[in-house]
Design a protein around this nucleic acid. Sequence first.
DNA 1: CATGAATGAGTATTCATTCAT
DNA 2: GATGAATGAATACTCATTCAT
Lengths: 211, 211, 211, 211
Amino acid sequence: MAVNETKVARKRAWQGAIQDADDQFAMKRQVVLRTAAQIFSRRGFHQTTLSDIADELHIAKPTLYHYFKSKDEILLEVQQAAIQQMLEAPVDPKANGFEQIRGFFHRYVEMIVDDFGTCLIMTGVTPLEPGNRSLVRKGSKSIELILRDMLKRGVEDGSIAPVDPKIAAKFMFGALNWIPYWYRSDGDLDVEGLADRAIEFVMRGLLKAPG
Amino acid sequence: MAVNETKVARKRAWQGAIQDADDQFAMKRQVVLRTAAQIFSRRGFHQTTLSDIADELHIAKPTLYHYFKSKDEILLEVQQAAIQQMLEAPVDPKANGFEQIRGFFHRYVEMIVDDFGTCLIMTGVTPLEPGNRSLVRKGSKSIELILRDMLKRGVEDGSIAPVDPKIAAKFMFGALNWIPYWYRSDGDLDVEGLADRAIEFVMRGLLKAPG
Amino acid sequence: MAVNETKVARKRAWQGAIQDADDQFAMKRQVVLRTAAQIFSRRGFHQTTLSDIADELHIAKPTLYHYFKSKDEILLEVQQAAIQQMLEAPVDPKANGFEQIRGFFHRYVEMIVDDFGTCLIMTGVTPLEPGNRSLVRKGSKSIELILRDMLKRGVEDGSIAPVDPKIAAKFMFGALNWIPYWYRSDGDLDVEGLADRAIEFVMRGLLKAPG
Amino acid sequence: MAVNETKVARKRAWQGAIQDADDQFAMKRQVVLRTAAQIFSRRGFHQTTLSDIADELHIAKPTLYHYFKSKDEILLEVQQAAIQQMLEAPVDPKANGFEQIRGFFHRYVEMIVDDFGTCLIMTGVTPLEPGNRSLVRKGSKSIELILRDMLKRGVEDGSIAPVDPKIAAKFMFGALNWIPYWYRSDGDLDVEGLADRAIEFVMRGLLKAPG
DNA sequence: CATGAATGAGTATTCATTCAT
DNA sequence: GATGAATGAATACTCATTCAT
């Protein structure tokens, strides 16, 4: 009885996300990260106190320090997770430039509408301490280079127009990175559809169909 | 002698921007706003202290309170100034949709590479207290509606493809709003050229020239 | 195999000091005390965390609570041990004052260069909670009274000069208690020699040999 | 009226120690230092909170940060002040070693019964952050070297016995540094007398008068 | 108008201690 | 007996803001 009550209380305390498992530690870390990411995105990093996060998780503030050594580290890991998700994604080496870009867009949209990706964009790297800021910037740069390479490939294989990969990539990331500011996943447009729209936009823009 | 020295010191104190005039007050306010906008953009709102701003201006911290009643008000006015610049800009009522959009882009790019516009984007509205946040959001919405109307007009007069104005506007603002994160006005590309590239991008995207 | 490994690990965990025995508990307590005394002396009581002590012993922090009920108690027992060592030492009732003092010095120096005595002096009683502080102070007072009695005896039996026992004792303890701040037992001077020097100093001071 | 009340309140707030003066800032700093030194000595550095100091001065806690940038800096300056007092003291170059030592003792006793000197001894350097700790240690070493030189001189000019200056200095400082632990300036013995007793002790020790 | 001085409110972080396993 | 997890309590420090001059 008392035991069950305790277990139930435990589950509530961690938002029911923690199952019996040996890797509880890693899982709890993830729950903290996701919760923090959501609150950071909504209120901003500096307007979010560690109490906010702890309260949301129904745990005490110092408990967070069992899992992370500082508030900064929490944000860092959130953003690294988003970046990692992109860097780990496989690219079809046989596809042409355009097809690769389409795949990239789908993955990027998926990443960016997720809690971690949204936080990467909406919180930005400014709140991070210099060292960590560099780390995240380096990761973002890597992602950018992936798209640039696809653009180069597309230009060469003729699957897209002969654009300047650097500038084109900037505009494309702009269009994509703005998504968290307006897109709501509970609306008419699902993530899949959103990615399609994005592709369509960067491909055709406002140009009238020929003829 | 001593008097002259004082005057010289005074000028230095306000970065030399203040002339003898009755509207010194208004001008000093502007200098504060511009300085604050720059620092906010660079370091972020919460990482910028009023001392940072005062130091940059070679004045004392409480002096800022002669011109603004709070830190929040400073950010508000910075962002309102950027928005105002767009809302006041004239639109050619005789031009077709596409031409209107082109004009809009030029004005928007000009606005957004300026200190105030950059701060509007890079700081965002999250730091503002709720009331002021709504004000700025309302202003941004107005700007958005202007572009949407132009898109509608363009679709109707056939000068652009039949896009969904809401979605298209979002992607377009995304591409534009990302500019402060990468564009440096001291590089190869001048503001005029930047606007042209932006137009080009949203018109053609990556589409190959027909034939 | 696994069993043996565990045992070996256990031994390492307690620094190899614990043998199979029924009095393991008491021995482990001693090891904790000595380790704590060393760290307290080096870093200070408040700069030493229970984790520091536990880490040094390769045990977990809460394990310490099996042996002591609080950090304060650890310090208390360290200091009591040092004091006890002095209070238990036998005094030759037949010796004259000077000879008793010489014996006292030898014992006191031995005590004070030891981990416990060093901690008694270098940490002091300030960190202790009031009740415990009184206990230690009372013990220190007892030691002081022992020396005072010897001084009185020496004055009476003519083996030393007619000094004020109270003041003389203070200066003597000062000279002795400062030892932990400068003496290193791995240098040229061994503990025995150190005690001799101390005796010599308090006996002759800087006075030139007559003639 | 109201003005007077204010002034009175001000005086009370700074314990009446602040007079009208241009160097109020420096004076207030001194008052903070002295107050802090007293409380540090009584309760220990870590058991003293900034609130304790502020409360004693009837000011608010953050006000302390107008005068010092950290708690550590307060302790540092207290200890530096004590050391400075000794380093600045003039030494009679024509006096023999013994006479120099006697002067040194008088100055040292005066220093050490003062708030700053007492804090230097009773708090010690352990609480200081490493950089500051080195600074104070260096200062203490300088003082020690002064006494050693006097001892050498005394040995050479024959005014004292042929002692090892290093060891003798250690014992002498011990006797002196222990003073704050027992001496109360409101007792029978005044500071002057205390210094005389100290001299007497280190000169003759317990040695019986010849004959 | 300008500012040195002062402060209230707030926040990240530390750590001794408890407890369920 | 041993420990990972959790937490209450405490504290240094920051900063926007006020006020007397």
